[in-house]
Amino acid sequence: MNGLETTTDDSTDSRADADPQPESAAAGRRPGLALTRFFAELPGLIIVALVLAFLLKTFVIQAFYIPSASMEPTLQVGDRVLVTKLAYLYREPERGEIVVFREEEVGPTTQGNIVGDTVRSFASGLGLIQPLERDFIKRIIGLPGDEVEMRGGVVLINGDPLPESLMSDGGYLAERDLNDFGPVTVEADHYFVMGDNRPNSSDSRFSLGQIDADQLLGRAFVTIWPIDGAGSLPIAEYEE
């Protein structure tokens, strides 16, 4: 009995001593296998990320770069804003909102470099560079059916003064433009837009004309850059 027990114990100890060797070898191989699998799956992960980014940019939200001073003091050159493309799915645009829209009949801006155009499109969607297309950002002043005019720097909507004020008085105007304009009637499904920097804004008073609802890309709702200037872009409230 003692001999059998001794033999059994010895064989058990021998197996116990041998078992860690294959486990140790397998453990050494796992990091290499994981790394190989990661690089094998990386192209697929990149494609999925690009598709998601494209869908997000196309249908939900997009960053835009501010290229000009037409919206000062509200937005400065080089600022980045986020625009929601879902804002007008369930309601109409409102007076006082800051919107981004695309110029009609924009011709091609690049020549056949599909890779370069794709990279640039994604970069513009992140607000890192100016977009390929000509996009504009302004404030909605006139709604469909409104009669819009300017007299002595004051905007009149259907004959009534629009209660706008200068930044120094808590408003959004850089300064008043004393050049008279109108009156004009805003067409159906169109919007009359102006920049907050009235004397230095090309808007619906000039070359841009009235903006078709189909040109609207969405509502700018927050500034994300520079960091110290980040914050919401609320809809201006007017007394009706």
Score class of each variant (00 low, 15 high):
Gly209Ser: 03
Arg151Cys: 08
Ala34Lys: 01
Glu104Met: 01
Ala16Gln: 06
Gly218Pro: 02
Lys85Ser: 09
Arg30Val: 11
Leu55Cys: 14
Ile114Asp: 03
Pro43Glu: 11
Pro163Trp: 06
Thr36Ala: 14
Thr118His: 03
Arg15Phe: 09
Pro108Asp: 12
Leu82Asp: 08
Val184Gln: 02
Asp117Thr: 08
Ile140Met: 05
Thr223Tyr: 02
Val83Ile: 14
Arg219Asn: 14
Ala49Lys: 00
Met194Gly: 08
Ala16Cys: 03
Leu86Ala: 10
Val60Asp: 04
Leu35Phe: 02
Ala49Pro: 13
Arg219Val: 10
Ala87Asp: 13
Lys138Tyr: 12
Ser124Lys: 04
Ala49Gly: 14
Ala123Ile: 03
Leu143Arg: 06
Ser14Met: 03
Leu217Glu: 13
Thr110Arg: 07
Glu104Asp: 12
Ile140Val: 14
Leu86Gln: 07
Glu133Asn: 13
Pro183Glu: 01
Glu133Phe: 03
Gly229Tyr: 06
Ser121Thr: 15
Asn2Arg: 02
Ile129Leu: 05
Leu132Ile: 15
Pro234Leu: 03
Tyr65Ser: 09
Leu126Ile: 00
Asp203His: 02
Val154Phe: 06
Glu149Ile: 04
Arg198Asn: 12
Ala213Leu: 00
Ala16Glu: 14
Thr36Asp: 08
Pro22Gly: 07
Arg15Gln: 03
Thr36Met: 04
Thr8Phe: 01
Tyr90Ser: 08
Ser121Leu: 01
Val106Lys: 02
Glu97Ala: 02
Pro183Met: 07
His190Val: 00
Gly112Leu: 13
Val48Thr: 02
Glu5Ala: 09
Arg151Leu: 07
Ala174Pro: 04
Pro199Cys: 09
Pro73Thr: 05
Val222Asp: 08
Leu166Glu: 14
Leu143Phe: 09
Gly170Glu: 00
Asp212Lys: 05
Leu56Lys: 11
Ser121Cys: 01
Ile137Met: 13
Asp9Gly: 04
Ala69His: 04
Ile235Leu: 08
Thr84Pro: 02
Met167Ala: 15
Ser11Arg: 11
Ile98Ala: 10
Met71Ile: 09
Thr12His: 06
Val193Trp: 06
Glu97Ile: 01
Gly152Met: 08
Leu45Asn: 05
Leu166Met: 10
Leu35Cys: 00
Ile157Asp: 09
Arg139Val: 01
Tyr88Met: 02
Gly218Lys: 02
Ser168Lys: 14
Ala40Val: 14
Ala69Thr: 11
Phe181Val: 01
Glu187Gln: 11
Leu126Met: 13
Leu173Met: 11
Arg80Glu: 08
Arg205Trp: 04
Glu237Gly: 06
Tyr90His: 07
Arg120Leu: 12
Ser204Lys: 05
Glu147Val: 15
Thr36Ser: 11
Asn179Lys: 10
Ala174Phe: 15
Arg176Cys: 00
Met194Pro: 11
Gln62Asn: 14
Val83Asn: 06
Gly153Ile: 00
Ser70Gly: 12
